[in-house]
Design a protein around this nucleic acid. Structure first.
Length: 414
DNA sequence: CGTCCACAGGAATGACGGGCGG
DNA sequence: CCGCCCGTCATTCCTGTGGACG
């Protein structure tokens, strides 16, 4: 027999307690507001570039640069949505497809997504990327439309596997007779140009739009624009709103971050039973977000990546000692033995360390120790308590948290 | 000032799981 | 069902290198 009274209380409290939020969806970063403050110029630019598509001519290709949370995606979606409604009004044959390259993952899957958007079903795997591309090409051409391809976070793809995808796409119009394609590339990395083939660069960057980070007062405006529809009147203190803006501005001028902070702060306040969101709730939210991010990232790692993290955890015990690759490999091997799994090679481990570094879980830096060789110095970027928390809850790895590596006892010197 | 450590990280290759068209 | 072609992960082999030591 389960005691449901506890749950009842939780639900009742949730339903009756509508004092803080009235619509928290407004604060999600994928929510598209009616107005995009401080991005009027970019909206106008992109609109001008794409306007010709309404008259069935191809718009220029555009490259959009800017750091995360500067409104690139929002502006693009905003303009495309309006373009779509206009197109319907004028009966212009306009279609578009938005692809987030980082989420989608591989070149193959980008083409697969494009195919799906025009109603072509392709298998998850099995075909060559070229085959999928050809099907897409034939598919769009048959439609006889102006097609806009949006490649968001294109840098994630290009850095990983080169620019052959972009190259093929920029040349696609030569093979099309009834349709035309224009592209919008979006990149978080301003140095992306350096990775690109000059031919791709010139055709892709017919136009460029740069998004500067928001400053604190701009972030404040963005938040205060959304706050009235997100929160009940009087439920949000001015100080809390300012703190969210300031924290996000200090980071990267990241509006996404500001919105997250505000939303989570509201949730923290709500759970605490408060009627007003105050600064302390924001600070709490900051910790909460970081904790969640790390927890999620750690939990989703593969077994071997987890073992690598654990090895570094053991090595950095006590002080802020930074491990080097060789040491990590020693302890990693011990842990693998304890687990009864075959260890990976040092070469592979080195790649895993780099992946963990770019996820922000580790901090890896190549250093030369002169006579004593060249290696990577690696330290944990995250709180040890979270590592304990994640691995202690793992049935397979729990016992390794308290494991005493023989390597460490063998080398009592530091 | 040359040597030589302890790796970094690129390239080629292979095992594996999966879908294709015939 | 088969032979073929993928993408992904991992191994093997490799060349390159910053700087303390002698």
């Amino acid at each position: 027999m389960v005691d449901t009274s506890i749950l009842d209380k939780v639900f009742e409290k949730f339903v009756s307690n509508t004092r803080v939020f009235c619509d928290r969806e407004v604060l999600r970063h994928d929510y598209l507001p009616d107005r995009l403050p401080h991005r009027e110029e970019q909206v106008r630019q992109l609109g001008e570039i794409l306007a010709p598509t309404l008259k069935s001519s191809r718009g220029s290709n555009v490259f959009i640069y800017g750091k995360t949370g500067t409104g690139k995606t929002a502006v693009t979606k905003y303009v495309l949505n309006h373009l779509e409604t206009k197109a319907k009004e004028f009966h212009a044959p306009l279609r578009f497809c938005y692809v987030n390259c980082r989420m989608v993952g591989s070149e193959y899957r980008v083409f697969a997504t494009l195919c799906q958007s025009i109603g072509l079903l392709v298998p998850f795997t099995g075909l060559s990327a070229g085959e999928v591309f050809d099907r897409f090409k034939a598919g769009v051409d048959a439609l006889g439309v102006i097609f806009i391809v949006v490649l968001d976070e294109a840098d994630a793809l290009i850095k990983g596997r080169g620019d052959s995808l972009l190259y093929e796409l920029t040349r696609i119009n030569e093979a099309l007779t009834k349709s035309k394609i224009s592209m919008i590339g979006i990149s978080n990395d301003l140095r992306l140009k350096e990775f690109l083939d000059p031919r791709v660069l010139s055709s892709l960057s017919e136009e460029e739009i740069v998004f500067r980070p928001y400053d604190a007062s701009e972030l404040r405006n963005i938040l205060s624009e959304r706050a009235p529809s997100a929160f009940c009147s009087g439920a949000l203190s001015d100080a809390a709103l300012s703190l969210c803006s300031a924290l996000a501005a200090a980071e990267h001028g990241d509006a996404r971050r500001a919105l997250d902070l505000l939303r989570v702060a509201g949730e923290v306040a709500e759970r605490a039973g408060a009627t007003t969101v105050v600064e302390d709730h924001v600070r709490e939210a900051e910790k909460h977000i970081e904790h969640n991010r790390v927890f999620e990232a750690l939990s989703n790692l593969t077994l071997h990546s987890k073992l690598v993290v654990l090895s570094i955890y053991h090595l950095s015990k006590g002080d802020t000692h930074r491990a080097i690759t060789g040491e990590i490999f020693e302890i990693y091997n011990e842990l693998c033995y304890e687990m009864g799994v075959a260890p990976l090679t040092q070469r592979r481990l080195s790649s895993l360390v780099n992946e963990l570094d770019s996820m922000g879980l580790l901090n890896a830096k190549v250093v030369s120790m002169g006579r004593y060789g060249r290696s990577k110095k690696i330290g944990l970027e995250i709180a040890r308590t979270i590592i304990k928390e994640v691995f202690a809850g793992d049935t397979r790895l729990g016992h390794l948290v308290g494991y005493e590596p023989k390597y460490l006892t063998r080398n009592e010197n530091r």
